[in-house]
Write a protein that binds this DNA or RNA. Structure first.
Lengths: 242, 242
DNA sequence: CGCGCCTTTGAGAGAGTTCAACTAACGTGG
DNA sequence: CCACGTTAGTTGAACTCTCTCAAAGGCGCG
């Protein structure tokens, strides 16, 4: 019995490379993908400075990617959920500028890049899809830049939580209750804040009845208000009565 | 006489789509490019929310790209110099998420995207080059995220100036003396700082003999020190004598 | 069951913002 | 060509958000 899962039956194919591919293209893509063994928490998928050979697609679990600063600190540049593709930042330099590490037990598919290019040459839809994924990542990066430059700590964290909720929903998970696979330290690192600030804000959000926090478990109580505050809408201004 | 300039003779082709294309591919690319008329300062090249039709390559001058926040502020996400490509963030959504405006008199080449895809299907090298450009933009975005999250105001501005200097050098311009086409307000907006902070820092850098400032004109006096400080190297630590 | 890492909470400090006033440069129309 | 309004830049002083430092509690894993 074939235990390995194929793109054709993967429940996250709607978020991944297979989007809008026909059967033939999908089969060709599936043929070149190497299923990797499971990663345990803290296992390194990509080590920065290593030569770029493959992209990786997350099948289950979650990972973080980070660049290392000249003074040795890490800066997290992304959290990856099932269906996400990792490694686009390495295509140009042929060397990975960032590292990727599993945040929990995870599975990934390895997509050898030169082979992917061959298949992409035969199937324009696949080439197109790769570009769409990269375009989206550039767009997300721009929005993140806005967040870091213009938003206060509470707005950043609310953005993070609402975005995570949305991403879970897209993947068929609950968007109202989920586990954070990253530590508060890692959330702070990503958002340009300290652990202490993240911790204080989470307790404050709980007091304000926006969420319920139980360690890693987050329950979303008032999504609309969270979304509004995440976008910098201050309710004092919204007292425009009918 | 044909006054329009072609990719074949463009002095910035080494930074743009033509990189590593053979004659046939280059000609095909050149054929689809529409030379746009000159943009004056403040002219809008791309207005956000408009449908995505084309990428643009900067031929001369400079532009800024920015996203607009929910509360109407602008967040600058990039400054573009000759050879840069604009519009990659729109490929996925087919709508421009950001606007682009000329900072001075500038010329751009319009590259209709569907036509570009056709040509890219025939010339794998071109397809590859597009992905390389996008990959580089993702990588730059990650580095910028590190800058905004981990670096102090002076380090951010020094990074900005040294990077600008490098980009000018790549384009055959002087890397030791150049004009800023953006205002201090725009620099601050990009770096997540205020005008006042930028102004104060520039005067401080001048006092410290790192640069000479005369309005928009910047002279680099001590590039090595600037580069070191831009990367967060504090010279107090570097007193490791032989 | 003990050690390490993660998290929480408090108090004080600091980098950069905000507010305000002033100067300089620009260009537009009289 | 000058007066004027507008935008850009500089500088000072007070404030504030978040960081830093410190200490204690809790969870999980060997």
């Amino acid at each position: 019995m074939d235990l390995s899962i194929h793109c054709q039956s993967c429940s996250f194919s709607h978020l991944c490379l297979p989007v809008s591919l026909d059967q033939a293209a999908l089969q060709s893509l599936d043929d070149i993908i190497e299923r990797k063994k499971t990663l345990q928490k803290h296992d390194v998928l990509i080590e920065s400075q290593r030569p770029f050979k493959s992209l990786y697609a997350v099948r289950s679990g979650s990972l973080k990617s980070f660049v290392t600063t000249s003074d040795g600190q890490e800066q997290i540049v992304g959290f990856h959920l099932p269906g996400d593709l990792i490694g686009f930042d390495a295509i140009n330099s042929k060397v990975h500028p960032s590292s990727s590490v599993a945040l929990e037990t995870s599975m990934v598919c390895e997509v050898p890049f030169v082979t992917l290019e061959d298949v992409a040459n035969r199937f324009p839809k696949l080439r197109s899809q790769i570009m769409h994924c990269m375009s989206d990542q550039i767009k997300q990066g721009n929005e993140l830049m806005m967040l870091l430059n213009k938003r206060k700590a509470d707005e950043r964290l609310l953005y993070f939580l609402t975005q995570l909720s949305q991403r879970f929903a897209e993947r068929g998970f609950s968007d109202k209750q989920f586990n954070l696979s990253m530590t508060r330290n890692e959330i702070g690192n990503y958002l340009g804040l300290t652990v202490e600030t993240i911790s204080r804000l989470l307790t404050r959000f709980q007091k304000d009845q926006l969420i319920k926090v139980d360690g890693k478990l987050i329950q979303i109580l008032d999504y609309p208000t969270m979304l509004a505050k995440a976008q910098g809408v201050h309710n004092e201004i919204v007292f425009l009565r009918a």
